[in-house]
Nucleic acid binder design. Structure first.
Lengths: 116, 116
DNA sequence: GCGATCTACAACCGTTTGGTTGTACGTTTC
DNA sequence: GAAACGTACAACCAAACGGTTGTAGATCGC
């Protein structure tokens, strides 16, 4: 149910770091090994590897083994899915969303009345 | 220079929390006071207020004082600016970005050669 | 004026994050 | 087979995050 919310959390979180956004740009252009990526940044290999893992867990990149190298490539579909989430937000603003109440978190410790 | 990167950090970080995304949806529909928003979630007023502050610092919402109430409203332009960042990523993938090297972080402890 | 309401913010706390170093394991190369 | 390379992962650390409670300042209603 809030499965898409979990996914949104992971996607936005992955994008909320400039090093990860930079890695994503590189691997959207073409495949890069983790070591090749790590050489680009002024931090340890392990740190870059962790960033790659975060991107992978979010589905923004995928990895392919090639001998001892691990080639990462950007998943443009995932980028588009984030864009579509923002598009939905814009539709909310336009008032074009049919069942807004379904999009909104239905908590309301006052009794889930939500009628405002 | 990496001013836009700071902004991107703030925007994606603000969006990387489901409560904040939910608040954003509500205030994109129309103005809500902080108290009205806080009533919707099963957490303290202060917690919701902090979320609102994060959204405001990122520029995703703005606040307007009306008597003792503080009315928050969503800034759809900021949402669009995030969408355009993702659009730029997609263009990187398409190979349509003219000066990619300017988009990519130019670190390279090996001497900023970047020639790969 | 006084109580109730709306807001802001400080102080605190457990967990996560982003970084480090060190170790270990498969793969290539000679 | 041994050295070098590419990777993965554990353990550790300071800082940030998301939450809490408590205090305090404006503003409204009566």
């Amino acid at each position: 149910m809030d499965d898409t919310e979990d996914r949104a959390d992971a996607l936005f979180h992955a994008l909320a770091d400039r090093t990860r956004r930079d890695i994503l740009r590189r691997v959207l252009v073409g495949e890069h090994s983790v070591t090749a990526l790590a050489a680009k940044y002024d931090m340890s290999f392990a740190a870059v590897q962790k960033h790659v893992a975060v991107l992978e867990r979010a589905g923004l990149i995928s990895k392919r083994r090639s001998g001892r190298e691990n080639l990462a490539v950007g998943e443009v579909e995932a980028v588009r899915s984030v864009a579509s989430m923002l598009g939905e937000l814009e539709e909310v603003w336009r008032g074009r969303v049919a069942r807004i109440d379904e999009l909104l978190n239905t908590e309301g410790p006052t009794g889930t009345s939500e009628g405002e």
